[in-house]
């Protein structure tokens, strides 16, 4: 009966494109998304929502993938996710989505760690533990490209992120790919060497706030309020003053570490504190190249769905042009709202 009720609920939850005044946004714990929790807890989101006369509920979901699945199912209007998951989950599921805010990219936050070996080449023939089909998997594929290896040269073992650190502590796990804070935890163990990390593919693992395109078109107020709240939080947390330190401490504590731990994670994350930097990044031609690489990886791993004849099956719109099928654009990078923030027009 419970399942039936759930099915009914999910059926009824289909996103509606009509203008509304109450919205739900999902986020999960990650260095680049902690500002959402802070903005929600400290009234910043409410302040901006009030300014535009709407109501925004910010919900923290403990399971990252579940939050994206819920967004795709229509239970949320917007959700934080990486560019790759944005392409392979909502966009591949036919939910037209827009990257409203480009928050940061991973600049060393994701890495490949080998036990007892110091270069990436020696990963050949090993079992590699990682969350299969995640950005870790993508990072590994990019790393293997760089040393002329293929995925068939090793065995990928799907391992839950919750158990990654415990798994690495066992003797038969010799290679892992993971993200922070797990990465720094694993690197602190003896004889562990980071042989490849996301700073070697800068700008390819991007953390976004993704919003349903139809909802955004019908409710530009929602886009404005969210963008406004985000850049106010950015200005606050990037400050060197007391308020900035307090904000970073709160975010660190909320993610289970402290100020020093959180700042260490920020150091390997390229945050776009200034809206103009995010706009410049979104406008660059490199974004389209990145999305091409991501789409090709996703297609090779069957993530675009069985109906996809090629990597360009799902179109990705970027300011420098559309990658792939222009008739089937499902993921859009739209700098318009970030531009408004940069121009101070919010």
């Amino acid at each position: 009966m419970k399942r039936l009720a759930l099915l009914l609920a999910l059926t009824l939850l289909a996103p509606s494109a009509f203008a509304r005044d109450s919205f739900k946004v999902a986020w999960s714990i990650y260095v680049g998304w902690m500002p959402w929790g802070y903005a929600a807890d400290h009234g910043i989101v409410k302040k901006w929502a009030d300014k535009y006369g709407i109501d925004i509920e910010v919900v923290q979901i403990n399971d990252y993938i579940e939050s994206i699945n819920q967004y795709t199912a229509g239970a949320f209007d917007a959700c934080v996710m990486t560019n790759m998951d944005g392409l392979t989950i909502p966009a591949a599921g036919g939910v037209d989505s827009t990257a409203l805010i480009v928050g940061d990219f991973s600049n060393g936050n994701d890495g490949v760690v080998l036990k007892g070996k110091k270069n990436l080449k020696s990963i050949a023939g090993q079992k590699v533990n990682l969350v299969e089909l995640s950005v870790s998997h993508y990072l590994l594929a990019r790393g293997l490209d760089s040393v002329g290896l293929k995925e068939s040269d090793l065995t990928v073992v799907n391992t839950s992120d919750a158990d990654m650190v415990a798994a690495y502590a066992t003797p038969d796990v010799t290679a892992v790919v993971t993200w922070n804070p797990l990465l720094s935890e694993i690197l602190s163990m003896p004889d562990s060497h980071k042989v490849f990390d996301s700073s070697q593919i800068p700008g390819e693992i991007i953390d976004l706030l993704v919003i349903n395109t139809e909802t955004l078109a019908a409710n530009p107020k929602l886009g404005k309020a969210l963008t406004g709240a985000w850049y106010e939080t950015m200005a606050l947390m990037s400050g060197k003053d007391k308020a900035g330190i307090a904000a970073r401490t709160a975010m660190g504590e909320a993610s289970g570490t402290d100020l020093a731990g959180y700042e260490a994670q920020l150091a390997s994350t390229k945050m776009f504190y200034q809206a103009k930097d995010a706009v410049a990044f979104t406008n660059s031609a490199a974004l389209k190249t990145t999305m091409k690489a991501v789409a090709e990886f996703s297609f090779d791993h069957g993530l675009l769905g069985e109906g996809a004849p090629d990597a360009g099956f799902i179109g990705v719109e970027t300011p420098s042009g559309i990658y792939g099928n222009a008739d089937n654009v499902k993921l859009r990078f739209d700098p318009a709202y970030m531009q408004m923030a940069a121009d101070g027009k919010l």
């Binding site: 099915l7 999910l10 499902k330």
Partner: peptide
């Protein structure tokens, strides 16, 4: 339910 969702979005993966 599946039919309703698929009419609205033929790529729907949920049902």
């Amino acid at each position: 339910g599946s039919d309703a969702r698929l009419t609205e979005n033929p790529n729907d993966k949920l049902l």
